[in-house]
Measured scan of single mutants.
Amino acid sequence: MATGGRRGAAAAPLLVAVAALLLGAAGHLYPGEVCPGMDIRNNLTRLHELENCSVIEGHLQILLMFKTRPEDFRDLSFPKLIMITDYLLLFRVYGLESLKDLFPNLTVIRGSRLFFNYALVIFEMVHLKELGLYNLMNITRGSVRIEKNNELCYLATIDWSRILDSVEDNYIVLNKDDNEECGDICPGTAKGKTNCPATVINGQFVERCWTHSHCQKVCPTICKSHGCTAEGLCCHSECLGNCSQPDDPTKCVACRNFYLDGRCVETCPPPYYHFQDWRCVNFSFCQDLHHKCKNSRRQGCHQYVIHNNKCIPECPSGYTMNSSNLLCTPCLGPCPKVCHLLEGEKTIDSVTSAQELRGCTVINGSLIINIRGGNNLAAELEANLGLIEEISGYLKIRRSYALVSLSFFRKLRLIRGETLEIGNYSFYALDNQNLRQLWDWSKHNLTITQGKLFFHYNPKLCLSEIHKMEEVSGTKGRQERNDIALKTNGDQASCENELLKFSYIRTSFDKI
Rank of each mutant, 00 (worst) to 15 (best):
R145S: 03
I172P: 08
A156H: 14
C228E: 05
Y171V: 14
N257Y: 07
L326Y: 11
P270S: 11
E147M: 02
C268L: 01
L332T: 03
L44H: 06
L96T: 02
N242F: 05
I185Y: 15
C335K: 01
L233C: 02
F258I: 03
C239N: 01
S54R: 03
S284R: 05
C196S: 08
L60I: 05
M38L: 04
R256P: 02
V121W: 01
C331V: 09
D169V: 13
P31V: 12
P334V: 12
G37P: 03
N202I: 03
S161K: 08
T229I: 11
C215E: 09
N42S: 03
H307S: 10
V121Q: 00
L90C: 09
T107H: 07
S284A: 12
G203H: 08
S317W: 05
D184S: 12
T140V: 08
H290V: 08
S77W: 05
Y154M: 03
P336M: 09
C286I: 03
P336W: 05
C311E: 01
V144G: 03
I84Y: 00
R256K: 09
A156M: 09
S317H: 03
Y134H: 01
V200M: 10
F205L: 12
E207S: 10
N105Y: 08
R297A: 08
P269C: 00
F103Q: 00
N135I: 02
E231G: 14
W210K: 01
A119V: 02
Q216H: 04
G183R: 08
S112G: 08
L76C: 06
W210T: 03
D247S: 05
L260Q: 03
R141Q: 02
R110A: 14
N322W: 02
G318Q: 15
C182D: 04
H48A: 07
H290T: 12
W160N: 01
G227E: 02
N135A: 08
L233S: 12
V265D: 04
G95A: 06
P70Q: 13
P70H: 10
V218W: 12
D39C: 04
I122L: 09
H236F: 06
W160M: 04
T85M: 12
L44E: 09
T329A: 10
G95V: 02
L29R: 15
R46L: 08
G333E: 15
G203S: 11
W210G: 03
D169I: 14
S98Y: 02
T194I: 12
T229Y: 01
G132H: 00
K224E: 10
P79M: 06
Y94Q: 07
T250Y: 08
T68H: 02
G58A: 00
P271E: 10
A254D: 10
R298G: 11
V34R: 10
P269T: 12
L63Y: 00
C228Y: 02
G262P: 05
L90Y: 04
N149W: 00
T199D: 14
P187R: 04
D169R: 14
K80Y: 15
R69L: 03
E238K: 06
N242K: 06
Y134N: 07
T140M: 07
T107E: 07
N138P: 00
G111H: 01
D261R: 11
P220Q: 05
P271V: 05
C186R: 00
V144Q: 00
V305A: 10
D86G: 09
D261L: 10
P249K: 04
V173T: 02
L128Y: 00
L102V: 06
Q245G: 11
N242E: 12
V34L: 06
L90N: 00
D169S: 14
K67W: 05
K129H: 12
T140A: 06
D165T: 12
V253P: 01
N135K: 09
F205V: 15
T157S: 14
T211D: 10
P316M: 04
C239K: 03
D288L: 14
E57L: 04
V108R: 04
G111W: 03
Y87A: 01
C255S: 00
E314R: 11
K217S: 07
K129E: 05
H226K: 06
N175I: 06
N309W: 06
I84Q: 01
L131V: 07
L50S: 00
H307V: 06
F123I: 00
N295I: 00
S112D: 15
P271G: 13
E151Y: 11
G232Q: 05
G192R: 08
M83E: 10
I40N: 02
N202R: 09
V93T: 02
L96N: 00
T194C: 07
M38S: 09
C153S: 13
T250K: 13
G241H: 03
K193T: 09
P334T: 08
G192S: 10
I56Y: 00
C286W: 01
C235V: 00
G37V: 00
N105G: 06
F73S: 01
L174G: 13
E33Q: 11
Y87R: 00
